[in-house]
C-alpha cells in the first residue's frame, strides 16, 4: 500500500526522567513531567508477536486479511503496527523489521 504519510519514526522522550513513549502523550505517565521532546528513532526493530486479522471491524472489512504485530524497537519500547507483508514472506517472532511510514492506519513496518 503506497499511501502518503510520515516517513520518519518519531517518539517522545520525557525531559524529566528520560523515558521514551509512543505519541501522543500529554505528560509523562511515569514521572508526571510535562515536557516531552521529539525523539527520532532508528526505525529498526523486531517482531515481538503478531497476528493476521480475518474478521475485521466494518471500516477495515475490505483490507482482510491483514497483519498486525507488536514491534520491539531498538530503543527498547514496543509499538503496535501494521506489517506490509509480501505474499511470499512469512512472519516470525524475532524477525527484524524496519519502519516504513505512519499514516491514518498508524505505524507500518516491513520485513
Amino acid at each position: 500500500m503506497n499511501m502518503p504519510g510520515e516517513e520518519r519514526l518519531t517518539l517522545l522522550r520525557c525531559a524529566g526522567c528520560g523515558a521514551l513513549h509512543v505519541p501522543p502523550k500529554v505528560l509523562c505517565p511515569k514521572c508526571g513531567h510535562e515536557v516531552l521532546l521529539e525523539h527520532s528513532a532508528s526505525g529498526l526493530g523486531n517482531i515481538y508477536t503478531f497476528t493476521t486479522i480475518w474478521v475485521a471491524p466494518e471500516a477495515f472489512k475490505k483490507q482482510v486479511p491483514y497483519e498486525i504485530a507488536l514491534v520491539q524497537l531498538e530503543e527498547g519500547i514496543k509499538v503496535t503496527a501494521r506489517i506490509n507483508k509480501k505474499p511470499e514472506e512469512t512472519l516470525q517472532i524475532g524477525k527484524p523489521v524496519k519502519f516504513l511510514r505512519k499514516n491514518n492506519l498508524g505505524y507500518w513496518f516491513e520485513l
Binding site: 509512543v22 501522543p24 474478521v55 477495515f60 491514518n104 492506519l105 498508524g106
Partner: peptide, 10 residues
C-alpha cells in the same frame, strides 16, 4: 493509537 490499526479483540 492502537485503534487506528484495525486491531480487534480476537
Amino acid at each position: 493509537t492502537e485503534g487506528q490499526t484495525g486491531l480487534t479483540f480476537p
